[in-house]
Nucleic acid binder design. Structure first.
Lengths: 334, 334
DNA sequence: GTGAAAGCGCTAACAA
DNA sequence: TTGTTAGCGCTTTCAC
């Protein structure tokens, strides 16, 4: 195999421990010896065996990012933020996609028991039937930070946006612009962030004396065809809404698809506002009013929080960081 | 720590080697012993220590994906494909972003010498001043597959799309629709795929008796502000093109931004076609004609190729797989 | 069919 | 300041 500490020690007439310490720049070793070791190691192109040291030190230098999907611009920006922080700290990022499947989430998390990763950043699946696997993960003192999609049943650090207020703002915005019949495109499952956005929606309805019964909540899924059907049905129904709040990025764009299909004019016939991080929301036809989530910052913050738990051994489980979203008004709600 | 093979052995009055073999379902061990071991291990929730076995077996079960960025929908779809294949084979995916910085690419690749990953999937930076680090990587028999952005100086497996033909088709399409003054928005640097797309553009110009001098190639960068300036200048110049080919996703959307800003009508005044994988290209204002790259398939194929090199120990370095792109005509070139 | 023992390469007591 | 030694948890001869 490659060059080992042992070989360096032999060649230099030193003990392996001396070489080991020298390479880790220990104060115990004299400058001269260090220099000798460094130079020789460099000359031989020595690369420490990761597994040997991980075996001893019980850390991998890896963190896991577990996500429902990567196609959503929110998640790809979050990865960007996470990767930046990780790279600057010398950590490595492992990405896992659950595709909204609890089973996959479970087996992925299960894998983490063997020490492949030192900590986990996570946005849970929408239909978290059971979250024992997450509790168990925390049980084996694996630092865990939820970002965006948190799991409420698990006591753990969280980085989220102001979902309730954003939902309320989005809805109020539609009402202010003149929409009278609203609908909230929710996401089936039991996500706290979706529930909060939805409660914000209800709050706004209430604030404006609108009836919850007449201004429905429609539960979408992650299956595009199903959603298109749902939205088509909604927009073809007797009580066609003239203002729609999309609780996640894709339902907003899917609404666009259906409006185009049905020749419904946005915003004249239907106003649309969507939770989204799309860079090109402004280029859509018409440009899309968004609740723009600070995806990059959320990723970055979540990673930094994780590293606090990891390196300072701080118990960050009670930390909850809320980074506000911004309503960017565009043509779709003009 | 957790449950070890040693503890199982002690509790069951067996030797560690017996337990080890039993757990790996060795033919040497009797069915009864195996059952005993399996059941006890399951009861104790035994999880093998990854680092101990990696240290012996010299494989990590990780693969690296090195990308310029993740915001681009091409790359996020590619990750999707890669992750799918990896997950089905029990491998883990590490993601690294270079942000078009050769220095970062070098240090990332350098890191791979310690065995953290068993193989590498890569789309190189645009301005690959030197690629010694990539050659060196191949030198230490690390399986390496380039996808999309290949490095020509390195003998390695490749998964690409039909860039020349796509460039030609895109250009021909503009000409067919009536554009007379063309421009190709290239990417500064020396990427083979960009050069090929550009040669396709030239080919189409030539086929139609158009002058290369009068139908320029504009070199964009990855800095958005710079690009916007370049494109603005192009579209405000004396010789304003009425047909634009965007060689990568972002320059196409940036062209939209500038057209909106300058109140240039697409496609009446300027037709636009872009290399892109945007799901929502059809929702842009106007909908964008794209050369749609098979991003997901390319990721998947690249990963499968890597695994052939990894598990069958096949030398796949001479493999070059070309997956064609599809021109999807939309409003922007009507 | 099972067990003893020698490492994989590195780290960290503890000794010198 | 340097060296000796005993592992980390697992795999793998080779002997029984």
């Amino acid at each position: 195999m490659g060059v080992t500490i042992k070989k360096i020690a032999a060649d230099l007439n030193l003990a392996v421990s001396t070489v080991s310490k020298a390479l880790r720049d220990s104060y115990e070793i004299s400058p001269e010896t260090k220099t000798r070791v460094f130079e020789y190691a460099a000359r031989l192109n020595y690369v420490p065996n990761l597994y040997a040291s991980s075996l001893k030190r019980r850390r991998s230098g890896n963190i896991a990012v577990v996500l429902p999907e990567v196609a959503d611009s929110f998640f790809s920006s979050a990865i960007d933020g996470i990767e930046e922080v990780a790279q600057s700290r010398g950590y490595h990022v492992m990405v896992y996609l659950t595709h909204e499947d609890v089973g996959r989430e479970q087996s992925i998390v299960h894998e983490f028991r063997n020490g492949r990763v030192d900590g986990v950043l996570m946005s849970v699946v929408a239909n978290e039937a059971t979250y024992d696997h997450l509790i168990e993960l925390g049980g084996r003192d694996m630092p865990l930070v939820f970002f965006d999609r948190v799991c409420e049943g698990v006591h753990s650090a969280q980085v989220v946006t102001d979902d309730f207020e954003s939902g309320r703002k989005a809805t109020q915005h539609l009402i202010d612009r003149g929409s009278k019949r609203l609908a909230f495109l929710s996401l089936a499952g039991d996500l706290a962030i979706i529930r909060l956005r939805q409660e914000g929606y209800r709050q706004a309805l209430c604030d404006n004396g609108l009836d919850e019964q007449k201004n429905p909540v429609v539960y979408c899924t992650h299956a595009e065809v199903d959603n298109l059907l749902l939205i088509r049905t909604l927009l073809q129904g007797d009580y066609r809404p003239d203002g729609i709040v999309g609780s996640v990025e894709k339902v907003a764009t899917q609404t666009y698809t259906i409006c185009h299909e049905l020749n419904l004019s946005i915003p004249t016939q239907v106003r649309v506002v969507g939770f989204s991080h799309l860079q090109i929301a402004g280029l859509l036809n018409p440009s899309l009013t968004t609740i723009t989530q600070p995806a990059f910052e959320m990723g970055k913050t979540a990673a930094m929080l994780l590293f606090r738990g990891l390196e300072e051994k701080a118990d960050v489980r009670s930390e909850k960081i809320i980074i506000p979203s911004v309503l960017v008004a565009r043509q779709s709600t003009a």
